[in-house]
């Protein structure tokens, strides 16, 4: 197997006395979908925040494409090809769907902050943005302000925004949360179409989705990884059943 794209080494983070991330080590290989599951409050989102740079770990290292990125700002990590989505959808409500996606295209353009050229009529931004929208099935909504999309559409938009960065790895923080069955199925299909092309770390509560999509599963409980491996093996793990899956019935 090739060298992992994303490696976490003994990452720790506490809020006061509360250990939210307790010695977490894991890795994601190129093209692999690694699912991170665990009960509420296990520290999954906190971990995603640390990987994307919004929180600083107390200790440990985060390596991305062979480089220690632990001290980098979120924007630098993004520019190195690490994209993410949010548990609570995060788009720019007043900008159109196309403009939202164009932000990502712009970030990797030659002159990302050009002062004078009109951005709305910029084919160099709009063409790749539209392509990303087509990939997630939102092309016909391109001109609508992002704030007016349905919840499921916003989820898809966030994915398109991540894809527009042409990332190596994508962190997906509960992309299915709050989405209806039909839209959920479409999103699962979409995610599975992305498998193999991007390394993905997927935080998700929907177990059916996780076991349908994941190449590898890690279980986080109280900030610790209690099991990690092939989906079938994790599902069979006694500790996992007791700590987590058992509760779900």
């Amino acid at each position: 197997m090739s060298e992992p794209v994303l490696i976490l080494e003994a990452v720790r983070k506490s809020f006061g006395a509360l250990k939210v991330t307790d010695d977490v080590s894991l890795s994601v290989a190129p093209g692999e979908l690694h699912a991170l599951i665990g009960p509420n409050g296990a520290g999954k989102t906190t971990l995603v925040h640390q990987i994307s740079g919004m929180l600083k770990p107390d200790s440990g290292a985060i390596r991305f494409r062979g480089e220690d990125i632990s001290a980098l700002t979120p924007e630098k990590r993004a520019r190195r090809g690490l994209a993410r989505t949010f548990q609570i959808t995060s788009t720019i409500a007043s900008l159109s769907v196309l403009e939202n996606v164009a932000l990502g295209v712009q970030a990797r353009a030659a002159h990302p902050l050009s002062l004078f050229r009109n951005a709305a009529r910029d084919a160099a931004l709009n063409r790749p943005a539209l392509a990303a929208l087509e990939a997630v099935g939102l092309a016909d909504r391109a001109e609508v302000p992002a704030g007016r999309l349905s919840h499921g559409e916003k989820r898809a938009l966030e994915l398109a925004m991540a894809l527009a960065l042409e990332p190596t790895a994508i962190l997906l923080d509960e992309p299915l949360a709050g989405v209806g069955r039909e839209e959920g199925e479409r999103l699962i299909e979409l995610l599975s179409s992305l498998k193999g092309r991007y390394a993905m770390l997927l935080v998700e509560h929907d177990m059916a989705a996780v076991f349908a999509l994941a190449d590898k599963v890690s279980v986080l409980v109280y900030g610790r990884v209690i099991a990690s491996g092939e989906p079938a093996a994790v599902r069979a793990d006694a500790a996992v059943r007791e700590a987590y899956l058992g509760e779900e019935g």
Partner: peptide, 14 residues
């Protein structure tokens, strides 16, 4: 965009 959602803008690479 940053006025509305600075976090989104920064994880997009700005």
């Amino acid at each position: 965009a940053a006025r509305e959602n600075p976090v989104r803008v920064s994880v997009t690479g700005f």
